[in-house]
Simulated assay, not measured.
Amino acid sequence: MTPGRIIFLNGTSSSGKSSIARELLDILDDGVFFHLSVDDFNSMRTRRELGPREFDAALRRTRLGFHRSIAAMAEVGNDLVVDHVLSEPWRLADCLTVLPPEDVLFVGVHCPLEELQRRERARGDREPGLAELQYGQVHRHGDYDLECDTGTASPRACAERIKEFLPRRPTPTAFSRLRELLDQDRMPRR
């Protein structure tokens, strides 16, 4: 069985990852793609109030389970569009460990901080300042196959750029290069 392709969108909250993912599902015509979102996984969690330690532990388990769900879906041949916030080094390290690096197109989704803040206020469903907290973290690893900026391009334009790039994935991929750094212990895991 041929493993599925993974288009992995990484960016801060409100950067436009989900909007790009929806556009990709509309325009990708060479397979059946599924959108897996970390926000959707979070929304499946119990609604009862959790203390800080319990919440942190649940959040970590949710992320670990999300990463393994991506791997399982791709392993059986499903093509995926993943949107995630790699705001802590261990999240990327875990993804590099469980996902097949040669099957991942790693896309950095950027947006100017002022625009992120405006989007957060307009949405009203995000913790104010969340994107700002994540801003200096999510792209710290510094290596992507492709990058897009939703401050200057529409989600549709970003999706079209990704679609055009998908058949021309580089060898080695960004995930392969980052995995090598991880294996050499030159990449933070915590």
Rank of each mutant, 00 (worst) to 15 (best):
H84Q: 13
H84D: 15
V85Y: 08
L86C: 11
S87D: 15
S87A: 15
E88A: 14
P89V: 05
P89T: 04
P89C: 06
P89F: 02
W90P: 03
W90L: 06
W90N: 06
L92S: 01
L92T: 02
A93R: 10
A93M: 06
D94Q: 12
D94I: 04
C95Y: 00
C95I: 00
C95T: 03
C95V: 02
L96E: 00
L96H: 03
L96R: 07
T97M: 09
T97Q: 14
V98N: 03
V98A: 08
L99E: 04
L99P: 00
L99K: 04
L99M: 09
P100D: 15
P100L: 04
P100M: 05
P101H: 07
E102W: 01
E102R: 11
D103A: 11
D103R: 15
V104C: 08
V104N: 03
L105V: 07
L105R: 06
L105C: 09
L105I: 04
F106W: 13
F106E: 03
V107Y: 10
G108D: 01
V109Q: 10
V109T: 07
V109E: 09
V109L: 11
V109I: 11
V109S: 10
H110A: 06
H110N: 12
H110S: 07
H110K: 14
H110F: 12
C111G: 06
C111F: 06
P112Q: 05
P112V: 00
P112R: 07
L113Y: 05
E114C: 04
E114T: 12
E115M: 13
L116R: 05
L116Y: 07
